[in-house]
Amino acid sequence: MNTLLSLFLNFMQFGLFGVGGGYAAIPLIRTIAVQQNGWLTEAVFTDLVAIAEMTPGPIGINAATFVGLRVGGLAGAACATLGCIAPSLVLVTLLSWLYARSRGSQAVQTVLRTLRAVIVALIASAAIALVRSAAWAGGRVDWAAALIFLAALALLRWKKLNPILVIAGCGLARALMHAAGVV
């Protein structure tokens, strides 16, 4: 099969079945890129996971771009990435339309109210996981990271600073600490 079409269709599979996002998606990417198509070796796949963790953006998009570039150059990257988002474009647009239409209904409001409470719990759980992975290293507290975290939280809560500036500032703060030999 044509490589570009194959990239599109395979990453469309990912866009269709990769529910839950993030790390839940890694095995599916491995199946597609390593086992079914032989586009990546296991070693390169491991590198891809490491790179995806270190760069911003959804892991599916990262993987699609990475694999697409290697297999089919820029056109390959475009096809794989488009394949990855195509199912979302159709399905989520449909859901968005349904949501806008039915939002006024009493029954839908009850369902949404229930969902919102659960989403708050899920965000809380994500916050804990993020704090742990940021400030906990090798079985002990990373005090520099904990300090940066607390300072960032204070700036966000009480100074209402722009969160993107805060995130970038945290990176710089850590770099300064590193340059000063603290961490």
Partner: peptide, 12 residues
């Protein structure tokens, strides 16, 4: 590593 701490602060 620093930006991770910042992202954790935003979600918290």
């Amino acid at each position: 590593k620093g930006m991770q701490a910042g992202a954790a602060a935003v979600v918290t």
